[in-house]
Write a protein that binds this DNA or RNA. Structure first.
Lengths: 203, 203
DNA sequence: CCAGTATTTGAATCTTTCTTCAATTCGATG
DNA sequence: CATCGAATTGAAGAAAGATTCAAATACTGG
């Protein structure tokens, strides 16, 4: 058993444990005992903090998304060159490898969102926030004359996020030839075309 | 109860029933009784035909994918203008609406593929086949001088399929502004840029 | 129309998971 | 350092799901 903790601390632990359990068994497939095991506790203890497993799972997904998004924002801190920002952001939207826990958790939601309103809202909101992130980079670059946008920045941003999403799925499904580097290159090729910027590539 | 049927017929029914059950409860969340109910049978009867529920679910997903792909191929039959083919194919890769059963079934797999090799292979194979489909259209159009490709046709095709995938998820998650038409327009804008063809748009 | 076989049911059983709660333990507080 | 309250266990009971199988039923070929 893990040592006794305060309500607040334990809830954080449980959210973390639920995340691991979801990755192992899927959002639909998680059982109380899976979470309890991951947390090193009894199912009763889990229930003491979260009488409803469903709510814990929602919190776990929510926390995972926040973390994913915040990490992306953090990667941008300190950068000022729009081209560099764009390249960094494209990379930060892709999984590091097939087992990347952040992206795998997000991918779990794809199917569930069609059945569950709460998950749908979470996922949709995340999408829109990511779009706004790209849009801000593109608009700044455009204003500075670094980018010559081939269309509406909103449209381009949506496509960029969409591409990230989709390649994230390919990578976690272990596509034999599309890994993190290849996916980044695919997205960058789009980004180069629509920004008119070589984005760090020689030539 | 549904009337008695031959082994082969019943298996087809069960695959269909399993598909509906998956849409209702998720691939991880389906239980024997869900499938039995959808089929109008007893759990025992289901087990008689599929002693292992997991295998039935795999067959259901497999059948769903084949059907999805075949439908796309069929939509192309009779068309010869590459531009028209491209437009039609972009539409056939998107859900008709948030409840489109074909796309929803595919979306179910996104998360599962990271955990299950069989699902990963199915999904990856489908992706590659769809890429080949686009590539054939693009190459033909290029050979005929209808398209002026802004890059490798393989790369462009991958991005097209990726965009479809991702917008399929958005639509089934009921994104408030991205519906089938908007998604098609987003993908078409990319397609126009990389083919140098207006793709049916005036102007 | 009969016999033989394949399909399906229904009920019993077994297993897994959920839920409840009295008893215990730990840690904070005065 | 004794007390109190919060956190946790463990065991028991209920619920849900899976599995088995003998009996019933409907189809098929002759």
């Amino acid at each position: 058993m893990s040592s006794r903790k305060s309500r607040a601390d334990r809830r954080v632990d449980l959210i973390e444990a639920a995340r691991r359990a979801i990755l192992r068994h899927g959002t639909q497939g998680v059982h109380l005992n899976h979470v309890a095991e991951e947390a090193g506790l009894t199912s009763g203890a889990v229930l003491y903090h979260y009488p409803d497993l469903g709510e814990l799972l929602v919190e776990a997904h929510h926390a995972g998304m926040e973390q994913f998004y915040e990490l992306r924002v953090k990667r941008l801190a300190g950068l000022s060159d729009p081209a560099e920002k764009l390249v960094v952001t494209i990379h930060s939207g892709l999984p590091v490898g097939p087992d990347d826990p952040g992206v795998r958790l997000l991918n779990e939601l794809g199917g569930a969102a069609a059945r569950n309103r709460v998950y749908a809202v979470l996922l949709t909101t995340l999408f829109d926030r990511q779009v706004a992130m790209y849009q801000s980079i593109l608009d700044t670059g455009s204003a500075l004359g670094v980018f010559t946008l081939a269309g509406d920045s909103l449209l381009i941003s949506r496509n960029l996020v969409a591409l990230e999403d989709a390649y994230g799925y390919r990578i976690t499904a272990r596509h034999p030839v599309i890994g993190p580097d290849q996916a980044a290159e695919l997205i960058l090729s789009y980004a180069r075309t629509v920004t008119g910027n070589t984005l760090g590539a020689a030539g």
